[in-house]
Design a protein around this nucleic acid. Structure first.
Lengths: 198, 198, 198, 198
DNA sequence: CATGAATGAGGATTCATTCAT
DNA sequence: GATGAATGAATCCTCATTCAT
């Protein structure tokens, strides 16, 4: 008997690459198999349907991201330092597995996706990490008393934009600094005495 | 002879609603026709392929958004006021045509979409408007000298996050104020003397 | 719009011909379509699955048979005459739609066929007709008091054998006479005084 | 080296059970292997294809049946007694290996089965035995001069019906008596003076 | 010999698109 | 112009068969 190999990593990697470039229906299982260098049937040993394979791509990536972010959040360093590290980590994770990210993007606004709950759970986990950082900062008196959740969302949005639309060659440290700079201080030249509508 | 009715609006509306909820391949032309209350063949009079129909949904919405934003950017009011108005407008546009937005989302990370250039052009147009506002603010000495493009991207990302993940019942004015507040002043309690890595 | 044609007859006819010759899995929907002179998709307008198409073949034939037999059973003539007419009818029906019969045969011993109840119902209907004839004959004092159901089954079995294994060129009247002759009088030269175990 | 076990009996038994319940294409070699408690590959050592396995099921059973019937036909006892014994034997054989019978049934009306000749040969052998009994009876002056082949066919058909549709709990002796009773004397109350159409 | 992982040909079904009415 | 019946290319998935261990 041939010894059982876990083909999941190859499958996932190549499938992600394909799903990142094309629509779900444009990606053929034949293609995935060919790219992964295995027979079509073998894919089905690990992912019983194309949909399940697609979902696996989404979740794997987020699980890694969440795990890495949590590790940093729980680690040493000041709040600001940890936020920065998290952004650096997210940037590198994003760049290393850009394909997975792209696949995910498409899912985010799918309203009736069956896996929506799982997806949402992971997104919420990410938000929680950011929000927790904000609350720590507030407790330490470093941050203003703004909504932690909203700020967390906005920080995520900022980082996302930089990653998606910013210079792809830019160093992850620089990206983190930019995001952090805006997140901490805003663009306004003067202090907080002047609110948006003051 | 029957009058040649322009069925595009109905088609677009119902197609958007469907494409917002489901994957491209899950949306059937039969369905679109049924929802729009016309025969399948009629859709093909206006949109020669499913892909073209899909593209039309994407572009229509962005064209409106860009036009509206430009109108405000060129209009009266201080820089900050105009930024705020733009966010309010984007929020309302987003909410009024949420379906279109959702359809677009999925496109954003599609690498080999045929319409990618057109899409990118529109995205760039939006960024330009935000970036122009930042530059005006800098010229007026209100904003710090940060990268206008990056800031623009980040502002867009912030707003996007609030819209997607924030309270959907929240007033558009409040949303704009939140975004603007963070964008202008950041979360840091103290001034700019303490940069991320200062 | 093309006017809707009921393609069922052609489909059924050609499908029966194919299913009669080959195993279920050997018959291709492509083939059925080709033989019926229509596109594959058109078959699916009328029969949503291959299984349903197969089932339709089975039922149609039996329904006709049962209806015809019932008509004769309810018609004029002596019991014996009506039994004979029924056999003639069955013979002719069998020969005219031999393909359908062959398809059915294969079903009869399928234990977990989903349509088993429907099939059984039809078989029971046929048995009932024969059994009713036997009972009429008994009431008239023509037949011995044997089990009507068993006799009915046996008569059916006799006819089936003649049709399947007898001379296919033989006149239906002759076949009916043969069956009837054995059914009525048996092969024994002497009377009933000598039972199997007397 | 492992001893070369002859796995044929288990394979055949379990395959028959499965083929009796389901269509050829519904029975999976995986299933057969699982039920037989061996690896899939092992089946292929004994039956090079699924079709061959299927054919083996058919033939084995018939060979046994024919052998048993022949033994009885050549044995002691009066013609009628031997016919009765044959029916008893067939009944018991049928009941003991019902699965094999069911598999066969489906084959009988398959027109282009590759193994058709072998199948037909076995069927013919059975008919010959019955026909020989009839001829013996005629020679002894016990039976009327009816067609031996037809009568044989009809007797087979009668028995088949009783087995398939009669009470499955019924004693094989009782079944044989019923069949024989009808076969010998028919259902008619009076003698042979009154033909079907006399 | 036995195993069961891997293979990949094969086919049912779907659905965008066409076009007769 | 509008319709929806008909088309048939396209693709997911299955499962008999092979063969490395």
């Amino acid at each position: 008997m041939r010894t059982a190999t876990d083909h999941r990593p190859e499958i996932l990697k190549h499938a992600a690459r394909l799903f990142a470039k094309k629509r779900f229906d444009e990606v053929l299982m034949d293609e995935v198999a060919a790219k992964a260098g295995i027979a079509k049937g073998t894919i089905y040993r690990f992912y019983p349907t194309k949909e399940k394979l697609y979902a696996a791509i989404c979740f794997d990536w987020m699980d890694h991201l969440v795990a890495g972010m949590n590790r940093i959040a729980d680690g040493p360093g000041s709040v600001v330092e940890r936020i920065e590290k998290i952004i650096v980590f997210a940037t590198e994770h994003f760049r290393k597995h850009r394909d997975y990210f792209d696949v995910l993007q498409r899912q985010e606004s799918q309203k009736v996706l069956y896996q929506l709950p799982q997806l949402r759970a992971r997104r919420t986990a990410i938000r929680k990490i950011y929000a927790r950082m904000v609350r720590e900062g507030q407790k330490e008196g470093l941050f203003r008393s703004v909504s932690a959740d909203s700020s967390a969302d906005m920080l995520m949005g900022m980082v996302r934009s930089l990653l998606l639309f910013g210079d792809p060659e830019r160093d992850s440290g620089a990206i983190a600094r930019d995001a952090l700079n805006l997140f901490l201080h805003g663009v306004s030249r003067n202090g907080h005495d002047k609110g948006a509508h003051a």
